[in-house]
Every structure is written in C-alpha cells, then in structure tokens.
C-alpha cells in the first residue's frame, strides 16, 4: 500500500484517516481488535512509532479503546463519532473550499448544486459495483 508522500498531511494523520475509512466501510466490527502498530507499519512501510501515533489519535477521540496488554479495540460508538467529526470538520472544510473556488470562478449556487448532484449519482453507481456498505 502506498501513502501519499507529496501531500502535506503527516503520515500518522493519513494512517488515522485510513483506519477511519476502514471503520466506516464496516471492515472492522464493534469490539473487534484493530490492526496493531506493527501490522500497519508493515502494510504501509512506515515506522511503527508513526503508526502508533495514528492509532493514538483515534484512541484519544474515543473511537478506539485499549485493553491492557491486548491492544486496541473498536468502541461501539466509533462510526458515529467518526461521522460526526468528519461532517463537522473535514466535510465542512471541503465545502468551504468548494464554495471559495466557485465564487472565484463565478459559478452560481444553482450550478454548483447541480454539479454536486451529478457527482453524487456517479458515486452511487460506483458503490453498487463495489458493494460498499452505505453509511
């Protein structure tokens, strides 16, 4: 697996985001053990300390909980927390950027909304093929 090295985001943030996506897609179940820092290190070819930092971000946010000596497990409210966080932060920021770009280009609100709608349709079709579990 390759991480995006060009992007400004630190690797541990990318690890945290990748784990969040795994959780959102339902690849990890409630109370299930998640990847260890060593597994992540091997998968992404990164230092295990960096991987641990990514895991710890999620633990600090209550998405994961720790069992002493056993590792990190997925908390039952994980999905909800991730969704909340992403909606209020990540998505909000992305929308702000989109609006900023649209204003710069003089794209009208109606135009922008129709663009979003089109993009949504494409994703729906894509999801049907891939069988990704909806949110």
């Amino acid at each position: 697996m390759e991480l995006n090295a060009v992007e400004g985001k630190p690797i541990y943030v990318q690890i945290a985001e990748w784990l969040e996506e795994e959780i959102l897609r339902g690849h990890i179940k409630e109370h299930e053990k998640i990847y260890s820092q060593y597994q992540l290190a091997e998968m992404f070819n990164i230092n295990p300390a960096t991987a641990a930092k990514g895991i710890n971000i999620l633990a600090d946010q209550g998405i994961l909980y720790k069992k002493r000596g056993l590792g990190m497990f997925l908390s039952p409210e994980a999905k909800e927390k991730i969704r909340d966080k992403r909606k209020n932060h990540t998505l909000k920021k992305l929308v702000e950027e989109v609006v900023f770009e649209a204003q710069l280009l003089g794209v009208t609100e109606a135009e922008l909304i129709s663009m979003i709608r089109d993009a949504g349709k494409e994703f729906d079709e894509h999801d049907e093929h891939e069988g990704i579990e909806g949110g």
């Binding site: 630190p10 541990y12 992404f44 990164i46 230092n47 300390a49 960096t50």
Partner: peptide, 28 residues
C-alpha cells in the same frame, strides 16, 4: 525523502553542529 517513512527520529547535522533532533512525525 527516501528514508523518511521508516524513521522514528531525525537528527539534523550541519557544519559539525546539531541543528535539530525530533520525532520525524513532528517535523512536518
């Protein structure tokens, strides 16, 4: 850049002096 990912710490040296020693994840 070719070793950044596998490092935990980075030690910067120039002209015989230590410039910086920090976890590589803090460097960014």
């Amino acid at each position: 850049n070719e070793i950044e990912d596998i490092l935990e710490d980075i030690f910067l040296l120039s002209e015989g002096e230590k410039r910086l020693q920090t976890p590589v994840s803090d460097l960014k």
